[in-house]
Amino acid sequence: MTVATTQQAGGSGGTSGLYDVLELVLDRGLVIDAFVRVSLVGIEILKIDIRVVVASVDTYLRFAEACNRLDLETGSKKPAGLSELVGDSNGSGAQGKAKGALEGAAQAGSDALTQARKEGEAKASPRRSSSRSSSRREEEQA
């Protein structure tokens, strides 16, 4: 089973699960106007850039090298080998992400948060099918 499901109920949720949902704890949830909210200045949990692939020279060269290195024949003809690979990277990749979020929490930079707010407000309807691509455009303009 490579789908990581963290059971949070009953207090059994591990810290790795927390890092995955930090942005919810910090950016979602009920807000009561009469209450003061702790300053989140200095917290960089929310990064705007959801794009994994950034069109840049570095990315191009990295992909070219990766394609050169990849055994494409093996990959396309042996699906079993492929899923094994995916299973492996799921574990390590997920850990990498969790670590990234933790490091992000310790880093300074309030701009990202402010920007995230603005972006959240700009989204009229989260259900709109084009919301993802339109928010991308907003990022690029920002």
Partner: peptide, 16 residues
């Protein structure tokens, strides 16, 4: 219901 979770680096989708 579906809610777009805050976008963060590295995910192609982040949905609640």
């Amino acid at each position: 219901a579906l809610s777009d979770a805050p976008q963060s680096t590295g995910w192609i989708a982040n949905l609640s």
